[in-house]
Structures are given as C-alpha cells and as structure tokens.
C-alpha cells in the first residue's frame, strides 16, 4: 500500500491561509488502512481545524467528505457539484489523489494534508516499513524475494557492503541489512548459487531516470466508434 502521514496542523493552517470555507476530502483506500487520511482522520482533522481557527479568531467552516478512491475519476466525479461552494479543498489522500483532484477540478485548488511517504506494509500494528520503490524492473526473483532496491540503503545489486555489521546497516542500527536477509534466505532455500552471479548495473531508465512513466494497454482501452 501507499503509506503516508499527516502534515503538522500548523503547516496545514499555513497552507489554508485565509480560506474560510474548506472541504476536507479523505480517501478510503491506502491512507485509510495506514490511519492517515480515512473517514476517521478527516473527522478529527476537520474538528481540529474548526477549533484552531476559532481560537485564532477567524472561524473556518470545515466540511468533510471521504471517497472510496481519490485516484480514480469515477470516485471523485460526484464531488464536483459540491466544490463550487468551497474556497479550497484539503485532500487527505496520497499525492496521486491530490493531483487527481486538481486535474479533474481545475477551478478548485486542492491542497495536500498528507506527506506521501513510501510503498510498504504494516510490519506490526502502528509500524509501517518500506518494501518497494516501484523501480519498474523487479529483481525479487534474483534476490530471494527481498528487495535490495527498497531495503538496502545503498541499493546494491551485489551486496552486502562493508557497512553491514551483525546483520544491521551502518546507516542506522534499526535498519536490518537487506543483503544479510537475502543471503540467509537464499541459504535456507538452497539458492545461494544464484547470488554468486554478478549482477550488471541496473537499467534505471525503467525507473524515474527515464522521466515520468506511463503504461498503455491497448487491449484494455475503450475505442470510440468511428
């Protein structure tokens, strides 16, 4: 899932500036399950904004809405008829949702209430960890199912490096050495031979180095009748 966290309230207030009527829009998908921008968080933030603006002497009218997925037109289109009455929209979705709102509704400014942080999973209740960098050329099949691009601080393809000490990374003792994990798992699975092959430099053109990416599936496109 996409993992995000809410911006500090003071930063959100600054972003909202002198807006007097605000719609806070949450998203019912990734940011709901990481407790950053779902219906509940929308309610809490809207309440906090109302109270803070009142304390500052400029009461703000703050309404709430949460859509199932803020990154798809079908789900955000029903918001259109409400948007005219608001000075700004504050989105509690990831950066994709914020941009979807701005693209779909060009006359209304949608501001971000979250910092989109990474693609990851909940390691335990309340703890999320990064697992994927969407590099566009998955190598999990070569690395015992553990990603060195997302989980090795140096993104090494032929690790570990000399900074791996007792199974942890020199960057931070809270970071397990991805290559230690890869090696241990490969030993367990009897696939060490695979790791002894030297991997050539990664083709980063399939990642962000090739510019913004796009996938076109002609088999799925709807072709309008001539």
């Amino acid at each position: 899932m996409i993992v995000a966290e809410q911006k500090p309230l003071a930063e959100i207030m600054e972003l909202l500036g002198d807006a007097r009527k605000v719609l806070v829009v949450g998203c019912g998908t990734c940011v709901t399950v990481c407790f950053a921008g779902g219906e509940k968080e929308v309610g809490i933030l809207a309440s906090a904004l109302r109270m803070m603006s009142k304390l500052e002497g400029h009461p703000m009218e703050v309404d709430e809405a949460t859509v199932q997925r803020q990154c798809e037109w079908e789900y955000i289109d029903p918001l259109e008829e409400r948007l005219g009455e608001y000075d700004v929209v504050l989105s509690l979705a990831c950066g994709i949702g914020v941009q979807a709102m701005n693209e779909r509704f060009p006359d209304t400014l949608t501001l971000p209430g979250l910092n989109t942080t990474f693609l990851g999973l909940p390691e335990e209740q309340g703890v999320w960890e990064e697992r994927c960098q969407a590099c566009g050329d998955c190598i999990l099949g070569l690395t015992a199912g553990i990603c060195p691009i997302a989980r090795c601080s140096k993104q090494l393809l032929n690790g570990p490096c000399g900074g791996s000490q007792n199974g942890v990374c020199e960057v931070d003792p809270d970071i397990p050495c991805a290559w230690q994990l890869i090696w241990e798992r490969a030993v367990k699975l009897g696939r060490v031979d695979q790791l002894l092959e030297i991997q050539p430099p990664k083709d980063w053109s399939k990642s962000r180095d090739g510019g913004p990416r796009k996938i076109v599936r002609e088999d799925l496109r709807l072709v309008e009748a001539e």
Binding site: K40, G43, I44, S47, R50, M51
Partner: peptide, 11 residues
C-alpha cells in the same frame, strides 16, 4: 466512544 465524538463535544 470515538475521538471525533470527544472533539465534537469540545467544539
């Protein structure tokens, strides 16, 4: 009792 109910009370 949800956090939102407590906040609404304060509001």
């Amino acid at each position: 009792v949800e956090v939102t109910e407590i906040l609404h009370a304060f509001e």
